[in-house]
């Protein structure tokens, strides 16, 4: 049953490996998940899933695979022992009351009715009607012991929560919803960097110093290296206006990420397409224009070019003119 479950998780593209499966079994063996469906669910989740973005998918698979798990656990652990019920009743009822019960058809009959009622309640509870509430009219209510009280030890959590934990789907928001923040963009931009040692001597090269000193029979021989810095030069072209309006926030984040990540960054704006000119200040785009020729001549071959755009034109720009 559990192997199949893992297979289903894998089919849902949740990366579950043998290691994790074995860890879960180990957990079961150590009785970490006791005897409720909820604990079993939590144990499975903590051992099998390693990222909150899979939680929602996991919930769905779990719900589909273990349908009726609650009932199963109930069958296993939830049978109400008769002696226990009897004891409970004896505790609660006076002798006179117990005699009254006898007139209702005796203990056996009473227990049978009670169990039927409990069964009924379990079924009807899912429909949402409050069977217990109407129990006041039943003989049990009259003798002052509450069937709900008997039940409580068995599955309180079920009474309290109509919806099972895994059916609540609380992690829906987290599923593959990791938005691109400035930080993520920075990380994405990082591979573009090329470190190079250029310029003056700056840093103490500890490894080389030790090696040189050792070779020098212990006399200190200090070696220096130039500090590493990012040598990549970047030209960033951003499409603005029209269809790009909806991406403004993403662009702003990308821009601030790129600004802090590259030492040499030049940015330009364009609209729809790189025509013969671009500009640096959106408010003065008609006055301060920079021709592409100028950019071409001023920046050498070692520059990297990043174009940001959505490759589309908003329809009204074509139709209105």
């Amino acid at each position: 049953m559990l192997v199949e479950f893992c297979q289903k998780l894998r089919n849902a593209r949740i990366p579950v490996s043998v290691t994790e499966y074995l860890a879960m079994l180990e957990g079961l063996q150590h009785h970490i998940a006791g005897c409720s469906a909820e604990e079993f669910y939590y144990l499975c989740r903590v051992t099998l899933v390693k990222d909150e973005k899979y939680f929602d998918r996991f919930d769905k698979v779990f719900s589909a695979h273990f349908e009726g798990l609650d009932e199963w656990f109930e069958q296993l652990f939830g049978d109400i022992p008769e002696e226990w019920l009897a004891k409970q009743a004896e505790l609660l009822l006076s002798d006179e009351e117990q005699r009254k019960i006898k007139t209702l058809g005796g203990w056996e009959a009473l227990m049978k009715t009670l169990r039927d009622r409990l069964q009924q309640q379990a079924d009807r509870h899912q429909g949402g009607s409050k069977w217990i509430g109407t129990a006041g009219t039943s003989p049990y209510g009259a003798y002052g012991f509450n069937p709900e009280g008997v039940r409580i030890g068995q599955d309180r959590s079920r009474n309290r929560r109509a919806v099972k934990v895994w059916d609540r789907r609380e992690y829906r928001n987290l599923d593959d919803n990791v938005s691109l923040g400035t930080r993520n963009l920075k990380l994405a931009l990082r591979p573009l960097r090329r470190f190079a040692r250029q310029g003056a001597l700056e840093e103490l090269d500890l490894d080389d110093t030790i090696r040189a000193t050792a070779r020098n029979a212990g006399l200190l021989d200090i070696k220096m290296v130039p500090e590493r810095h990012n040598a990549v030069k970047v030209l960033l072209f951003l499409d603005v206006g029209g269809s790009m309006d909806i991406h403004v926030r993403t662009c702003a984040e990308l821009f601030s990420a790129a600004r802090s990540e590259f030492k040499h960054l030049e940015y330009f704006y364009f609209h729809n397409f790189l025509y013969d000119f671009v500009w640096k200040d959106n408010r003065r785009r008609s006055i301060e224009q920079i021709t592409l020729m100028e950019i071409n001549n001023n920046n050498g071959r070692d520059n990297k070019l990043i174009l940001v755009g959505d490759a589309s034109i908003i329809p009204y720009e074509i139709t209105i003119r």
């Binding site: 180990e26 970490i32 998940a33 909820e38 144990l43 903590v46 051992t47």
Partner: peptide, 16 residues
């Protein structure tokens, strides 16, 4: 919460 307790207990007892 219940799930946090389970996580901690699983980690402590299974030494992960």
């Amino acid at each position: 919460t219940e799930d946090l307790m389970m996580a901690v207990n699983a980690a402590v007892n299974l030494a992960r």
